[in-house]
Amino acid sequence: MHIRKSLFIAAFSAAGLALAAVGAQAQDLSIKIATEGAYPPFNQTAPSGELTGFDVDIANALCEEMKAKCEIVAQDWDGIIPGLVASKYDAIIASMSITEERKQTVDFTERYYSNYLRLVAKKGSDINGLDSLSGKTVGAQRATVAAQWAEDNLGRNATVKLYDTQTAAYSDLEAGRLDALASDVYPAFDWLKDKPDYEFVGERIEINDLIGIAVRKGEDDLREKFNAALTTIRENGVYARINEKYFPFDIY
């Protein structure tokens, strides 16, 4: 009886172990991540349709760190939060600023980089800072902190035009429809590399803008996993290596 019982226990625990192993296998995290695909150099769609950029590299590094199977999909900016809420994907890694308004709808991880704004204008134009914008036309991408800042701070004296994508705003700056563009600094820095006729004007515009990963409200488990992975890639140099690929200075 005694032996039988211990045999039974042994068999049971062996089965338990096997089950636990299967369980661990099944727990292999599978995450669908959305990015915009139109915000170079952070996220962009290559001619082949492949998504590339800083956000995408960070997403892949985090997934590797979390040992998760990740799929990255492109989603238009306007619908990117509604899509997350509707569970079309589980996280947004698309250079999204952590704002109070967005926090009403989604939760954010800690920052993975931080941002400030700059004005971009044609070289030799009469725009040299915030005071010279009166009566001018200033562009920004709709649904960004730059747009919000422009509307709140320039709306009274200047005309603010909003674009669906940053790319559209650049093309209107070049077409001469805009006198200046209010933009996040890094994508503009990247764009200016190939545009010798344009430059940053005025001082940097500090807006206390931290960029985080958005997850559905209450998904604390996933959020903490992202946070842990972020800390690790900051420490082990993976982040720095990705950063270096795009900018000659630390953007964290």
């Binding site: 939060i81 509604p82 709808t105 562009g139 709709r142 649904a143 747009a147 035009k161 909003l162 669906d164």
Partner: peptide, 22 residues
């Protein structure tokens, strides 16, 4: 609204982009 005109749809999208309330 996709070419920067703030018609009814353009304004709606701009308002939406601030609150994300459907």
């Amino acid at each position: 609204s996709t070419i920067t005109v703030l018609d009814l749809m353009g304004q709606t999208r701009t308002v939406f982009s601030r609150s994300y309330n459907l």
